[in-house]
Design a protein around this nucleic acid. Structure first.
Length: 320
RNA sequence: GGCGGCGUACCCAAGUGGUUAAGGGAGCAGUCUGCAAAACUGCGAUUCAUCGGUUCGAAUCCGAUCGCCGCCU
């Protein structure tokens, strides 16, 4: 393992609702450090209740980085995240503080741990013209286009997955290089990232889903509806990432008279469960994660203690 | 007790004599490198409440039984 003497980053992951935040806060206090958040929605200002962002008071106890970076009318990205997070990390390291990363956005964590290959940011106009082309010439057009210029990518991407097709085409048009080629090249480069220990928190499915539903109910009590009402009054495009945060469409529909409050609540609970499922699928594919199964009644104190034991063991293995 | 309606998957539901019983939701499984709380993919009934009958052929027609709903008494 490279970099002896370099203390590994501690990365805490897991689906929404497992209890990452409380555990991370306690760990940060114990370690005397801050938290590097890896959450694609916490980067937007506002939406505190909607995204279960820690309150200012919480943030006074434990500082969090990579939150409230841009306004809801802006579009953030994985690339921007990597840049900002690396800056925050090196600032902390300069002060000899251990690095604790916590979050549920797998892609963002991936950019930090495994790097992001060199490729251009998205081109809105180019994408617009691609969408128009698909509409005019029929479904499958973009896929055929990609098939012609980058067959390997075309094979990997489903013909209906416009989003990924556009990215692959965009990369080719802007760089003249195939995305699949860039991918392969990136794989070949030895991973020269910082050492890390990744811990995943897990719960029984039923337990997790119950917690998610209870938390949604709590969000309503805290004023979810009025928070989203305020957001909707800004009349932002529904295409914006912040507007596609869980809760926004469901509550907006209720506010427009499209459904009852009960229906909106049920939908939000369902969609949050779906989201948690996708996160679990993402993280379960990462073999670097050491999983910790949480008991239903387990306190974050107990979890922290277990993590502490785990870290001691890992550190011993490392130096052995 | 009488009359009428209904009974198709966990839920909603199409199909009312003839290819392997639509579709949607839930659930489960998965993909993922610059919008990722996004976007996208895959999976379910050898059987239509039950039993029997008619027919070359029944979820579909007939009878009985069970269950639910409505109206009447």
């Amino acid at each position: 393992m490279k970099g002896e003497g370099v203390s590994p980053w501690i990365v805490l992951v897991g689906p929404t609702g497992v209890g990452k935040t409380a555990v991370a806060e306690q760990m940060a206090l114990a370690l005397g450090t801050d938290i590097i958040a890896a959450d694609s929605r916490h980067v937007y200002r506002g939406l505190r209740i909607t995204t279960n962002k820690p309150t200012r008071l919480d943030q006074k106890r434990v500082a969090r980085h990579l939150i409230n970076l841009v306004s809801a009318r802006e579009t953030f990205s994985a690339g921007a995240y990597k840049k900002k997070a690396e800056q925050a990390i090196s600032d902390l390291e300069a002060n000899e503080k251990p690095i604790l990363i916590e979050g549920g956005t797998g892609l963002y964590i991936k950019t930090l741990l495994y790097g992001l290959w060199e490729s251009p940011p998205k081109d809105v106009l180019l994408r617009q013209s691609l969408i128009e082309m698909e509409e005019k010439e029929g479904e499958g057009t973009l896929h055929r286009k990609l098939q012609a210029i980058d067959p390997a990518s075309a094979q990997k991407i489903h013909f209906k997955d416009q989003y990924k097709l556009m990215r692959a085409l965009e990369v080719f048009y802007k760089t003249g290089r195939q995305l699949s080629h860039i991918h392969a090249e990136h794989q070949q480069k030895k991973k020269e990232g910082h050492p890390f220990i990744m811990i995943g928190l897990r719960r029984d499915r039923d337990d997790l889903y119950r917690r998610i539903e209870a938390r949604v109910d709590l969000q309503f009590q805290k004023g979810l509806v009025s928070e989203i009402k305020r957001l909707c009054e800004k009349r932002l495009s529904t295409e914006l990432p912040a507007m596609r945060t869980l809760g926004v469409t469901q509550i907006a529909s209720y506010l427009n008279g499209g459904c009852t409050l009960d229906a909106a609540t049920a939908l939000l609970k369902r969609d949050t469960r779906h989201y948690a499922k996708r996160q679990m699928t993402w993280f379960s594919a990462d073999t670097n994660i050491t999983w910790l199964d949480l008991k239903e009644e387990e306190t974050s104190d107990e979890t922290c203690h277990r993590i502490h034991l785990l870290l001691t063991k890992k550190t011993a293995e490392r130096s052995a």
